[in-house]
Design a binder for these strands. Structure first.
Lengths: 225, 225
DNA sequence: TCCTTTGTTGTCCAACTGGATAACAACGCT
DNA sequence: AGCGTTGTTATCCAGTTGGACAACAAAGGA
């Protein structure tokens, strides 16, 4: 009952051979779905491979290590989100852009961020990606603040510092809302908008009145839920 | 070269036999140190055992399962920290208490919290403990705010809401500081103090001038670093 | 056509995990 | 002193993980 080389060859039903980019994309999307469901620490090569429909060895053909895969997935999710956000914000008036950026983001997004904060301490490639993206976010928000100031709608002595402040507030509010559930979405927006109005000298309620707040883009992993 | 039963017996150098409570405490402290360094998912019975100086089998003599151990450690950390903080704050004047509560906490503490936020989404018992903990924190800070108001030092239309707001700011700042490293400890304190002063109508710099900011209690896991 | 490249599989491996269990040893009770 | 309780060790186990590797197969260029 030994099988010959020919037997094994015939038995091998290969999944379609895809182009490098296509397969790479499949793997990253599957990884993102897994991250959303089980966190960064819960991503295993075998599970990703199963979801893609290939053998776990193939993953290593595309990513040098598990950590690299996870970092690449995070990188992809965040940069695609940032890209669409940046494009969206550019088409809005300054106040709408500010409100749009600060408004509560979909739950999936923040779950990934929170997981990344936690896991980055132990996964250097993730830490690098996280750092890069936080600085990108700071830069985007700084630009938005400068647009508000240039339009004469508000004031800021140090747009970059105000950007860091508002990012901190938004992140803290997101944690309280998504991870802890102590505050609801309305209180979350109220806190962040209030902080921005107070810090930038806007008239109270200026941001809440921007209606409707433009929806932030959905990232790739959302479909995989 | 087979060793007899007697040989093995003599070779066995047992670590001192400790009382049940004492050993249990050792294990929990070691677990907390491990959680701080490697996250909840990174806690392994063998590593805990090594740190305590015993064999991994012994851990199961005290805790039914790995998950039970982790949950017990988190419960212990949270309740002991809150207890000591509450006692500490009671002995201070209102402004010092407020500054003490809002000042940046040791890195270890926030590491554990960030991990808990991340892990809670997948571990219901942890989510319950986290929820309890955050509500306790809200209650403590609300009481401190009320003391500030009663002393005529500041004003608050809704102390509980202000407590949630300041907690969100503190948590967000802690994330930016500990997990991302975008802001340093001085900027962190400046942001949180500024938010509190603005929200409660204190004179600017009132909290920063409280000197020295009373140190928050160290919890058990700190020693294990 | 031959040959190189590269997508893909199947299989092996060493490390590590949580858990179970038998034997041993210190302690307290009577 | 005898005896049960329990703190403690030393092993065994089955499962999972990330990684390495040889072999195969589909493309594509010359």
């Amino acid at each position: 009952m030994l099988d010959t080389v020919a037997d094994r060859t015939t038995a091998r039903k290969s999944s379609e051979r895809k182009s490098s980019d296509e397969r790479r994309d499949d793997i990253i999307r599957a990884t993102l779905g897994l991250v959303a469901r089980k966190g960064f620490a819960g991503v295993t090569l075998r599970e990703v491979a199963t979801e893609v429909g290939v053998v776990h060895g193939l993953i290593r053909h595309y990513f040098a290590s598990r950590d690299d895969l996870v970092a690449a997935a995070f990188d992809f999710a965040v940069s695609s989100e940032l890209e669409s956000d940046r494009a969206l914000l550019d088409g809005l008036d300054p106040l709408s852009a500010l409100a749009g950026w600060l408004a509560a983001t979909p739950e999936n997004h923040y779950r990934v961020w929170i997981d990344a904060w936690s896991e980055a301490a132990r996964t250097p490639p993730l830490a690098a990606a996280l750092d890069r993206h936080h600085r990108d976010c700071e830069r985007i928000l700084t630009a938005v603040i400068e647009r508000v100031v240039d339009a004469g709608l508000g004031a800021s002595a140090d747009p970059a510092a105000d950007s860091r402040l508002l990012t901190a507030v938004a992140d803290g509010v997101a944690v309280q809302h998504h991870a802890v559930g102590v505050i609801d979405v309305d209180e979350a927006d109220a806190i962040v908008f209030g902080a921005a109005e107070s810090q930038l000298g806007l008239e109270p309620g200026a941001l809440a009145r921007v209606n409707p707040v433009p929806a932030r883009g959905q990232w790739a992993g959302d479909a995989a839920r």
